[in-house]
Simulated scan of single mutants.
Amino acid sequence: MKFKALYAGVLVGLILLVLFSLGSGLWGGSDGLHWTEQLFSGVCHQLPNRTFTFMGELMAVNTRCFGIFSGLLAGWILIPVLKDMISEKKWPFICLLFAGLLQIIDYSGNLFLLWENTNSSRFLLGLPLGMFSSIVIADLFQSTK
């Protein structure tokens, strides 16, 4: 693996991203807008009915964003383990496209009242989108042959 320091830095950043997304339940409650909610306000709609709670407090991001962030971290952790399986292969990109398509299908089905997605389904569909996003860029961190 080349760029080990960069890989480690991104890993630390993703761990912090997931920890910060847990919100005021982890970092201590506040009466007003918590700093973690402010941190994510530009990237997440943070609707309370679409947000998990953690330690009795709403998380700083909605369930889909938390799934994506958790998936990014999981995929990043898997890069060294899967390095031979993903090196210069097309399947991670195809899986990423499929994960994106699942988001569109889920949103559309809910929009057209074909089904009602839940917080659990949003989280579970966000996981592969984040995971394959990390895995797709894994070739940047592999040794050249």
Rank of each mutant, 00 (worst) to 15 (best):
Q46A: 08
L17V: 10
S70K: 03
H34M: 05
G23D: 10
F98Q: 03
F98H: 02
L113K: 14
G71D: 12
S143E: 15
S108I: 10
V12R: 05
S21Y: 05
V61R: 04
D139T: 14
N117I: 04
T53N: 06
Y107T: 13
D139Q: 12
G126Y: 01
T144C: 12
G32D: 12
L11Q: 05
G28K: 12
R50D: 06
R122S: 04
W27R: 08
V18I: 14
M59K: 02
L124C: 02
T118L: 02
N110L: 00
Q142A: 10
K2D: 03
N117Q: 10
P48I: 14
K83V: 05
L82Y: 06
R64D: 12
L26Q: 04
L125M: 06
M55T: 02
C95L: 13
Q38K: 14
L111I: 05
A5G: 05
L73I: 12
L11M: 11
T53W: 03
G32T: 10
V10I: 15
I86A: 00
H34A: 02
L97N: 02
G126N: 02
T36L: 02
K2G: 01
G28L: 10
F141P: 12
G28H: 09
K4V: 07
I137W: 12
S87V: 01
F123L: 07
L58K: 11
S41N: 10
G75P: 06
K89A: 03
L97Q: 06
F69S: 08
G28S: 11
A8E: 13
L73K: 07
L102V: 15
G109R: 13
S143I: 14
Y7D: 05
S41T: 10
F66W: 06
N119R: 02
T118P: 01
S121A: 10
G126I: 00
N117H: 07
F98R: 01
A5E: 09
F20K: 02
G67P: 13
S30P: 03
D84R: 15
V61Q: 01
S70E: 05
S30T: 12
K2W: 07
N62C: 15
L73E: 04
S87D: 10
I135M: 07
E57A: 11
S134H: 08
R122D: 05
F141H: 12
L127F: 01
F112Q: 06
L125C: 01
G56S: 06
L124W: 07
A60Q: 05
Q103H: 01
D31N: 12
G25W: 11
N49F: 09
S21V: 06
L26A: 14
L140R: 12
F93D: 01
A138C: 09
D139M: 09
F69L: 03
T36D: 10
E37S: 13
W91G: 00
K4Y: 01
T63G: 09
N110V: 01
L101Q: 00
L19W: 03
I137P: 00
K90V: 15
